[in-house]
Amino acid sequence: MLEPVMFTGGVYKHDLVIELVEDLGGYLLQKNVTQSEVILLLLVPAEDLRILEDLTKELRGELTRAPLAGTEVAVVTPTLAIHHLPHTACDVAEYLRRNGAKSNMIGLARGVGREIAQINEYETALINEHDAAVFLFGNFARCIIKKEELYKGINIPVVVTGGPEIPKGEMPYAFEYVSSVGRIAHRSKKANEIGNLDRIIAAVGRALDKMRADIEKDPLTTSPPRVMDAVREQVPDIERSYSPLPIALNLTGCRIKLPYEEYHDAIGAVRFDEGVKLKEIARIIPSRMKSYTLVRILPESETGMVF
């Protein structure tokens, strides 16, 4: 069982942390260096967490649990106009990030209004590439209920946020509804506003747990971090990707930020110690996001093995 944690500390000697995690059989998901501080997102075997905690103490760093690490969450607003951004959307996205998720902000082209709101096939497919989605709606109950049309066709769990209290029965397609958020024209700074953000994180956590439980019924052939590690080792061009996170993990695979056309053969040919190639245990498909490559690991029922 791998435990997702976030290490925050000085740049000095932080490579000791990375080395230790690799020695323990864990994975480094993301490394952010901001001047003299470094933030590492790590997956560490739960039974060895103590060793990392000791090293962190020695380095005067801080180790926190990041329950959403290794997932991608979409934050969806009706449009990117000033009415919806920046306050609520940025607060939610930032809070997801702080809890370890990779959050992507998506503004729909025509998501506004009560009668005229719509979503197109491309937007739906793009949101479906994530592990969970948070839809940010406004302050009027009747509009929020009506806007169900926007997320009806989405396969991943959708957490809907809005202002008023609405009984769950009114929104059958939402995984959960978080009230008292809605449209606000200032940053979240009061205690109750921060509390609302925590409730959104908790709801997203439950949505991801449900996804994990669903996957557990027919386990994946291998784990996404393992694919990430193998790709990093065998496709050296990934180091030249300008994205801050060249490989973003999903629950069922990963998004590799290299052009699909040029690299899908190289990615498919990545070989594991067990002697199988990546293309034999996963689907390698073009992502809807830019020209990236998406890897979707096949479940045991299709490949007949788990390693």
Partner: peptide
């Protein structure tokens, strides 16, 4: 929409 009214009060003032 009592909640919406109270919330829009804040938004407009902001």
């Amino acid at each position: 929409e009592e909640f919406g009214a109270a919330k829009y009060r804040e938004i407009i003032l902001d």
